[in-house]
Design a protein around this nucleic acid. Structure first.
Length: 158
DNA sequence: GCCAACGTTGGC
DNA sequence: GCCAACGTTGGC
């Protein structure tokens, strides 16, 4: 079992929407490194930290789970979609998705700012690397444990 | 295969 | 809205 962090802009798709829908095809990933995680490294049952990006308080807001095998992302073949890719052929789909299942909303947001304050304890964490832009990134088991235990702390004051 | 130009991400 | 960082594209 592995762990991941997946970013979503809450204006596009929020943890509350995932809660309402139960599960959701995580489409629109158009980065090869992230695609390779989806295709090669994820397994059904893997844990997901749901992260809100591009919003007033970026941070981890919930827990989800990988609930499907890697599937072709239909949006790559949809000319109306922002994610349309003319270079992807239906018999060799370039982009994949996984369905993600809702687990729970965190009792409080664990903000990026707070995570930075724990950078030493977290060790090498892709989210905190300078200039990081990956929308799907791996989380180690110790990092997963550490981050979830932060949920029980009082929020860092800012 | 190099690399400049361009586009995107995402924090601030 | 700005802009640093970084991925992709395409001319050569």
């Amino acid at each position: 079992m592995r762990y991941w962090l997946m970013k979503s802009e809450p204006e596009e798709f929020s943890i509350q929407q995932l809660q309402r829908r139960g599960r959701e095809p995580w489409n629109g990933v158009r980065n090869y490194q992230a695609r390779n995680f989806l295709r090669d490294d994820m397994q059904i049952g893997d844990g997901v930290l749901f992260y809100h990006s591009n919003c007033p308080i970026p941070g981890i807001v919930g827990i989800a789970e990988i609930v499907s095998e890697a599937l072709p992302d239909p949006s790559q073949f949809d000319r109306q979609s922002d994610y349309f890719d003319a270079k992807s052929a239906p018999d060799a789909p370039r982009w994949l998705l996984r369905e993600v299942g809702f687990k729970r909303v965190l009792r409080r947001t664990i903000s990026l700012d707070e995570l930075k304050q724990h950078a030493d304890a977290l060790g090498d964490f892709a989210l905190l690397r300078r200039g990081n832009r990956l929308s799907i990134l791996p989380v180690s088991a110790p990092q997963w444990q550490y981050i979830l235990q932060l949920e029980n702390h009082l929020g860092a004051k800012t």
